[in-house]
Every structure is written in C-alpha cells, then in structure tokens.
Design a protein around this nucleic acid. Sequence first.
RNA 1: GCGCCCGUAGCUCAGCCGGAUAGAGCGUCGGUCUACGAAACCGAAGGUCAUUGGUUCGAAUCCAAUCGGGCGCACCA
Length: 545
Amino acid sequence: MPPTDSIAELKGAVEAAARALRDGEPTEPAPTLDRPPKPDLGDYSSNAAMLLAGPLGDNPRAVAERLRGELEGILGGEVGNLDRVEVAGPGFVNLYLSDAWYRRALAALVAAGDGLGPAPTDAPERILVEFVSANPTGPLHVGGGRGAAYGDAVVRLLAAVGHEVEREYYINDAGTQITKFAESISARMKGEPLPEDGYKGDYVVELGKEIAGEGIDPDDLAAVGDRGIALMIDQVRGTLERFGVVMDTWFSERSLVEKGDAEAALAKLDAGGHTYRHEGALWLRTTDFGDDKDRVLIRSDGEPTYLMPDIAYHWDKLDRGFGRLIDVLGADHHGYVARLRASIEALGADPDSFEALIMSLVHIVEDGQRAQMSKRSGDFVSLDDLIDDIGTDAARWFMLSRSHETTVDIDLALARKQASENPVYYVQYAHARIASILRKASAEGGGGDAEGRTVPLEDSEKALIKRLLEFPHEVREAAARRAPHRICAYSTAVAADFHAFYRDCQVVGADGDGVEASRLALCLVAKRTVAGALGLLGISAPERM
RNA sequence: GCGCCCGUAGCUCAGCCGGAUAGAGCGUCGGUCUACGAAACCGAAGGUCAUUGGUUCGAAUCCAAUCGGGCGCACCA
C-alpha cells in the first residue's frame, strides 16, 4: 500500500465538501489549502467559500458555514481527524486538526521512506539540460559557476519528480575564437606579443609551457589549438567535479560540423523554403516565426555564422529523442533566444519543446569593489578561486538561494567573515544536530514509532510535521518553476522549525507514553527531509560538523 | 528607439498562475547554556511592496502608463 499524502487527503475533503454544495459540480479554480498566517487561525485554511459565493449567489461567510457542516461530516466524528472548523475573516474556512491526524500524518511520512511520496509528476518527459557550455578558451569563472549550480540543481529537481534528465555541455571548439585562442598560446610559446584581442590571462602562458613541453610546434596552430582546448576542457571538467557537477555528455561543435549535420540542417531549412540569398549571404527567415529580424546563416565570405551549427545542434538534440530541450544561458545571450526558437520552428519542430532559462549576472565583491570578469582581459575571479575561498557548499548555496533571474552580489569578505553563521551552515547544523540525537538514541536503544502515543503533541511538533508534509509539494513547485531557490528557502524553514522543536521538546529520554518514540520518528523524517533538500541543491548534509 | 529582466525592511533577497496583520538571512538593540550540539533559541526596532491609474468581494501579486537600474538588439561567439 502506498504511503498516504495527508495534505492531498485534506484537499480532497475540501473539494468534496465544495462539490456537495453544488450537486457534485467541481469548483473552478480548485479551492486552496493553505497554512494560515497565524497559528491560532488553525492548521489549514481554504478559500473555497469565497470561490463558491458567486456561483451559489450567497455571501462567503454563509457559504463557509455550510462548508463547515460538510467538513465536520467528512473529517470529524469517527474519522477523528478534526478538532473543529471555524469560519473567519471574509469567509475563510479554518481547519483545526486532531492529534490523531498528526500521528497518522507522521506515520505516513515515516512510511514514505526516502522518496517523495506518491505521484511526483503527472507527465514524465525526456529532458536534456544544456548548461555552462562556456567556451573552452579559459578557466570557468563565477558566472559559469552560477549557471553550473543552477543547471545542475534544475536537473536534480526534474529527476526528483520523475523526469528522465541528462546534463550536457556544448563545447564551442570551432570558429574564430578558437583560432584566436591558438594564436594567443602560440604567441606565448614564442615569447611574441599577443594578437589583437588575444587571450591575456596567465593561464595562457601556462598552457604554452605545457604544450611546448609536449613537443608541439608553436607554428602548428591547429595542433596548438587542439591541445589547448583539450587541456582547458580537462580543467573545466575538473572544476565542475569539485563543484559537484558531472556532465553526462560533452558535445563537440566540431564533431557536428565534421559529421555534416550543419549541411543537413541547412538542406532541411532550404527545403522548407525558409532561406533566401541577399547581398551574397544566406539568410534564414526567422521573422516568419516571431523573431524581430531575419538572421544570416552563411556569411557573404562563405563562413557560417555561429547560429548555423547551433541550429544543427538543437536538431540533433531533438533527433536523440529528447522531448524537451532546456538551455541555461547567460544574461548576455538572451537576445539569442528568439532566433533559436524560431530556427527550431523552421525545422518543423515544436518550438514549445525548447526552453531558455536566462541567468542573471553574478558579481564577486571584494572590499566594496566588483571584480571584473572578462576572460580576455585575464582579470576575473575563477570558480576554482571561489571554491578555494568559501567552499563548494557555501558557493552553491549563495548562487542557488536567489532566483536565477535576479542579479546577485557575493561579498567575499562577508562570506568569509560570516562563515560560522551562514544560512547554509544553519541548515547543515540542523542536520548534524539531528544526527547527533539519533546517534545518542540508538546508543540508548531508542526507536521511532510514530503512532503509539497518547500524550498530546506540542505546537512545535505539529509545526514541524506540517512543514515536513510540504516537501513533495515544494519539490514539485521548484521543479515546475525551475526554481531551486525555493528549496533553499524551504530548507531554512525546516531547520528553523526543527530548532524550535528541539528547544521545546526533549527527545531522548522524554517522559510520557510513546513520546520518545514518536519524537524519534519525527527526527528521522526531519533528517531525511533536510538531507533530501540539500541533496537537490548539490550541498552536503554532514553527520557531524 | 525596440525587446527581456529587475525596483519589497539599513543591506542581500523571498513571496508574484489574486486571499486574512507582507516574510527570511545579515546588520542593530536586549535576553537565554548543570537535559539530547549555543554553528542554536527568544524578544525588540525596522515597510508609502518605485509612482499613478485600472480589473476584483479582495492586488506586493493581474493589466496599462510613467520613473529608475541591468542586459541585449552583428554577415562576433
């Protein structure tokens, strides 16, 4: 028997009560089941009466009174889930649940195990999330790190709700910037001045030394470039692994070109009648699909623009059977989305299968000044530096705790100084604290039984149980909205509720019939939930700190 | 000029497919360790939710306009 979703049961009861007032007709939109703003307004509340007032031609409070009668019948009496129902404010129906309901809810959480409970998603998809995809011409900087943390967390969220998801990094290993990169390395190897707009960072010097040490001729630009890219990709891969991100696929742009996929995509666009020649260039009529101007595919000098292989690349993704393509892109690429989407539609694919998530900027602030982050100037904060400084857990937390579409400043001095009172440590501390309690309990032979308890629950126990019940919903919301920052907020709330519970309630050795056992069960679920939430963020949940 | 994003507490930000007295962290001020971890807890102060108008029983949330900030508008990637 699958574990019960206690909240879904309550929601079902409210809907049933609403239907009863309308001869079985469902309410549109569905009534809410929320946590009221204040504890004395009940455990849960619904706006059903306000929604029904119009259709029933009665005032909300009168409707609420009728709902109250229905709900008392459904949840009260022998069912025993209800202490009482009250009508408050403009017509809210407030539910006050019994201890028996809480005991059963806790037991259901224990039974749910490490999973998210029933029905994580209604429509599983095969999803490819492409993220980071930084040019392999330099180390990963913090902006790429934010994209990495975000893309990875989105993958974890989507996987958690039942989608089949893969991580992919698109390597721009063809084109003019690669030539410039090779020229820069070569110049360093020969001790000559950098070319115009060359790559200036010290890492280019290091690359030059390493490549020279391998006996590669500095004048063999193709060999220098290939080796340089290979070394950079190795470095980026290593940085990402330190950061907890492991790609399923590293997809080479060059391989695409060599396979002839670009020509194939072009042929398909031609056949569809979406291209035309103008002033010596080949254009794609993206304006037919919502773009604000047409785009060049092949320049008048015969070279393809970067859009050409990118179209082929996205076509390839679809061809591999992914029903949804998610691109995590930097803020400076948002102007690119419309043409890519249009291109996908021009290929005959459903443009809604393509989703671009635009990352806002991240600034590293030191001594009140923003560090510059231009790869070519060589003056930027690398992700490796940041990890060295504040660690993967803190770095990921800071990057994930805010919406991806808002700019974020990370003040290094502050992050260092506050290390001991950082929000991520706050949550991790809660986990370590629970672990400590459970260790002690197990040493003393205590176990967790959620239901065999006759002593009433404390308010802070109820608050924690309610919080833990929200986890599956929070995960679904965070996944649906591509919003891992919600999980940060939720983790903090769980930790806060746990600390309040800890303050009020002795666990090990608690007095009362079944009290210790039920509190141990609560600790067990709380620990699992914190670990699960942190896991979705790619942040460790330490047993000890 | 056009497009996208953002204006919420001193600071950094949640809340945004409408709900009750708008939240968190940090910072400030004041309390709490002879019970399982004080990296914690409790309390206080702190707000014209940029502005104006509209929709609604109800707007931080939806719509319009305005103001302010960021980013983008290549035959560069």
